[in-house]
Simulated assay, not measured.
Amino acid sequence: MRIVIVGAGAIGGVIGGRLHQHGYTTALIARGPHLTEIRRRGLRVEDPDHAVTVDVPVHGDVSEIGWRDGDVAVIATKSQDAVAALEALAAVAPPELPVICAQNGVDNEQQALRRFVNVYGIHVMCPATFLEPGVVQASSAPISGLLDVGRYPSGTDATSQAVAAALMGSRFDSRAVEDIMRWKYGKLLLNLGNAVQIVCGLGTGLEIAHRARQEGASCLEAAGVGFVSGEEDKERRGDLLTVRPVGGKSRGGGSTWQSATRGLNSIETDYLNGEIVLLGRLHGVPTPVNELLQRLAVEVVTGRRAAGSVSEAEILRRLGS
């Protein structure tokens, strides 16, 4: 089995780097300065205890891979880039290729199933960072993250079990699960606070994030969508994730914060808070907090507002609270 990581940023880079480090056949798809640095010096994977540079094969496009039987594609782009990545992959890979979505949000698997027969999801619990070309960080050690795998829309099979086994052998905790989307919807609720980090600033806006998650849970319940409870999530994590500083520096924000910090002009908020807004409109559930966060996050990333410039008090006033 060769595992091809499409999108070697924070999550994709840590997954691909760890797999290659531990002897699994792996290839990366990267772009821009990140691609250049990996080709020049290898991919540097840092964690609280060690740093390793892996000479993993890297390509600039999925058309360069030469897809063959036994390959598995792991899509690790941001959700807003998923359709473009899947379209490019579908143009050069067979429809039977196993495609695994290791992304935030819950729309990616459905998009993949439009184009490929065998689709899987990964429930990503992996505190990773990508801010510098050629370098990714895993903030938890010795376990880098929890990466449960399941077939979409449900079930397990030999592929999900083989991928989970490879991840288990590469400093992740992973299992094949029957109900992967229930776990991913639970993660979606947690990710509703990502926008708060760039709108209000790190460590602030906790009440806003709480209200966003309450709206999210109400929408999922109205839509009849199952999701794991906080208790289930806590039990799954146990004491496996141990987040500590890397290189003497504490981890900053999550994936949305990292995109904004790197100056990207798009973020995944439309597939996080926007997913809740969509469900609310479909099922008649008001979602004022998620709607406002969605708009404010876009204003930040497009430069109309400074990151961290909106106070919790201002948001509460705008919500009439």
Score class of each variant (00 low, 15 high):
Val4Cys: 00
Val4Phe: 02
Ile5Ala: 02
Ala8Ser: 10
Ile11Ala: 04
Gly17Ser: 08
His20Pro: 15
Tyr24Arg: 13
Tyr24Thr: 14
Thr26Cys: 09
Ala27Val: 00
Leu28Tyr: 12
Ile29Thr: 02
Ile29Ser: 03
Arg31Ser: 02
Arg31Met: 01
Leu35Thr: 05
Leu43Cys: 06
Asp47Arg: 10
Asp49Ala: 15
Thr53Lys: 00
Asp55Trp: 08
His59Ile: 15
Gly66Pro: 11
Ala73His: 04
Ala73Asn: 01
Gln80Phe: 07
Asp81His: 05
Ala84Asp: 13
Ala88Tyr: 03
Ala88Thr: 11
Val92Cys: 05
Val92Thr: 06
Ala93Val: 03
Glu96Ile: 11
Ile100Lys: 08
Gln103Trp: 01
Gly105Arg: 03
Val106His: 00
Asp107Ser: 12
Asn108Phe: 08
Leu113Gly: 10
Arg114Ile: 07
Tyr120Lys: 06
Ile122Val: 14
Val124Met: 02
Met125Ile: 15
Pro127Met: 01
Glu132Val: 12
Glu132Cys: 08
Ala141Asp: 04
Ile143Phe: 00
Ser144His: 04
Val149Tyr: 01
Arg151Asp: 01
Arg151Met: 02
Arg151Glu: 03
Asp157Met: 08
Ala162Arg: 13
Ala164Glu: 04
Ala165Tyr: 07
Met168Val: 15
Gly169Met: 04
Ser170Cys: 01
Phe172Tyr: 08
Glu178Gln: 15
Asp179Val: 09
Trp183Thr: 11
Tyr185His: 12
Gly186Glu: 09
Leu192Asp: 09
Asn194Met: 04
Val199Asn: 03
Gly201Ser: 02
Gly201Met: 04
Thr204Trp: 14
Thr204Cys: 12
Leu206Asn: 14
Glu207Cys: 13
Ala209Cys: 03
Arg213Ala: 15
Cys219Ser: 05
Cys219Gln: 11
Leu220Thr: 01
Glu221Thr: 06
Ala222Gly: 07
Val225Phe: 05
Phe227Arg: 05
Phe227Val: 08
Val228Gln: 08
Glu231Gln: 14
Lys234Glu: 13
Leu241Ser: 03
Val243Cys: 11
Arg244Thr: 09
Gly247Met: 09
Gly248Thr: 09
Lys249Leu: 12
Gly253Arg: 02
Trp257Asn: 03
Tyr271Pro: 09
Glu275Asp: 12
Leu279Arg: 04
Gly284Gln: 03
Pro286Tyr: 02
Glu291Trp: 03
Leu293Trp: 07
Thr302Tyr: 03
Thr302Ser: 13
Gly303His: 05
Arg304Ile: 12
Ala307Arg: 11
Gly308Val: 05
Ser309Thr: 10
Ala313Ser: 12
Ala313Trp: 06
Ser321Trp: 15
